[in-house]
Structure formats: C-alpha cells, structure tokens
C-alpha cells in the first residue's frame, strides 16, 4: 500500500486508523464474534502448520461451500471470490479458542493440499468433500468416494446438481 503523493493528509490518516487485521499475512475477519482467517490456497498448509504450533492442534471440522449462486459475498478486499470455499475449523484445547480458515478454490482447478499429514483426522472429512463437491486433495492417501457409490456421476452438494433428477419408477403403474 504505497502512499501516492497527491493524497490528502486526512485520507491517509484515516487509512492508517483502520489497517486490515491480519495474522501470518492473511486477512482476518470477524464473523458474529468468531475469528475467520482468509488463507491463500498456496499458503494453506503453511498457515495450518503455524497455527498448529500456536496451539490450534485439533482440526474439528473440514467442509466446503459451493458459492456459485452467491459470488458477491462479503470478503476482505485482498481476497478474490472463487466458486468453492474450503472451510476448516480448528480448535485450541489449551487456550479454549477456535479459528476458522476459509480457502478460495477456483472451479477450473479444484484442488487443495491435504491436511492429512498434519491432522490425520481430516481423512474422512476430505474424502467427504471430494465426494460431495469434487474438490481434490493433493496428497490424500485414499482419494475415493465415501458416502456415494463408487460409480456415481456428479457431485451432489454442488449447486448445479439438481435434486429429484433420478426418475421415480412405480411398479405396475401405467406408463
């Protein structure tokens, strides 16, 4: 954020008053009193490691959201909205605090690093996200579907996966 010389003093002091809060260089926001960290996809694993060292040693939840029908959601200015978001909830048992990571994942390259090596408990959750959203986890030891049958087409929790698309057949009914 380089100050341009023709900026008025008032404006720059206003800017200085409200610096974008951040942690490990990632913009940090507050959602209804909960701490949210918007992590860049490339730095995701790195930040998760640093947080684990800080005490956030337990990954309680990992899920994803398909924002294709709600792209204009509020995000910090430095974050570009993508179709998918991987949402990770971390817990620090010692200090009794929680933090949430939100990682933007583009549609064309739906791939993120796996947290498996750091938090083995994400194994099933990452498989579920892969199963439901088609987001791949790079380095996951067992990237197979978990809830849907192996030969299922499509990813059910994507917004473009319509409900009720399987025709219902009634036995003995006139067709």
């Amino acid at each position: 954020m380089a100050d341009t010389p023709d900026e008025t003093i008032e404006e720059s002091s206003e800017l200085a008053e409200v610096p974008e809060p951040e942690m490990f260089g990632c913009p940090m926001t507050d959602s209804r009193g909960q701490l949210v960290l918007h992590v860049d996809r490339d730095r995701y694993l790195d930040v998760a490691k640093q947080l684990a060292d800080e005490g956030y040693a337990m990954c309680v939840d990992l899920t994803a959201v398909d924002y294709s029908e709600h792209m204009e959601r509020p995000l910090p200015s430095s974050v570009t909205a993508e179709r998918f978001e991987v949402v990770v909830n971390l817990l620090d048992i010692t200090h009794r605090r929680r933090i949430r990571l939100r990682v933007q994942v583009p549609e064309g390259d739906a791939k993120v690093a796996t947290l498996f090596d750091l938090h083995p408990g994400t194994e099933a959750m990452e498989r579920e996200v892969f199963d439901m959203f088609g987001i791949e986890f790079d380095g996951h030891p067992d990237p197979s579907r978990i809830l849907m049958p192996e030969d299922w087409n499509g990813y059910p929790l994507r917004k473009d996966f319509q409900v009720g698309t399987i025709p219902v057949q009634f036995k003995g009914a006139a067709s």
Binding site: V60, D61, T63, V65, E69, V87, N89, G121, A124, M125
Partner: peptide
Amino acid sequence: CYIASDGSPTPYRMHVRAPSFVNIQ
C-alpha cells in the same frame, strides 16, 4: 453446525459436524 446464509429464508449451506462420523475413524 456450520451455516452459511445468503440473506434468504433457507440456509445457503448447512453442514453438521457429526461426532460419530469423525469418531468412527
């Protein structure tokens, strides 16, 4: 329970962190 809302009367995304799902690992 993780809920993302887009301002409408239905949740945009509703996810439940089920303890059994994780414990079964």
